[in-house]
Structure formats: structure tokens, C-alpha cells
């Protein structure tokens, strides 16, 4: 097939780069959600320690 013109090829290139960016972004967002869960766990441990009076 002959090379696509820039405006046509640009759409494919942008789509490919955006897909990879989105995958990494979703991954990092999931990691951030896990981090906030860890933060809640730390809070609950603090509460337990407060309850025990230590």
C-alpha cells in the first residue's frame, strides 16, 4: 500500500500513542486507589491503637 498522507496517518499515530498513554494512566490511577486504601488501613490501625490506649 502507498504511504498514507500526513492528515490520514496522523490519526492512527495519535490513536496509538493515546492508547498507550491511557493504559499507563489507568494503571497509575488504580495504584493511586490502592494507595488511598492503604491510607484508610493506617487510619484504622491508629483507631485500634487509640482504643487500646497505647
Amino acid at each position: 500500500m502507498p504511504a498514507l498522507p500526513l492528515d490520514e496517518a496522523g490519526k492512527y499515530v495519535a490513536a496509538a500513542y493515546l492508547v498507550v498513554f491511557a493504559i499507563v494512566l489507568i494503571y497509575v490511577a488504580i495504584m493511586a486507589a490502592k494507595l488511598s486504601r492503604i491510607e484508610r488501613e493506617v487510619d484504622s490501625i491508629h483507631e485500634l491503637l487509640d482504643k487500646s490506649g497505647r
Binding site: A3, P5, L6, A9, Y12, V13, A16, Y17
Partner: peptide, 14 residues
Amino acid sequence: DADQGFLQKIFYIH
């Protein structure tokens, strides 16, 4: 790229 033109830029990520 001489053959694929601008489309070949996907190569650097794929």
C-alpha cells in the same frame, strides 16, 4: 519512513 511515511512513528511505541 520512505515507505510508510508518518505512520511508521507507531513503530517507536509498538
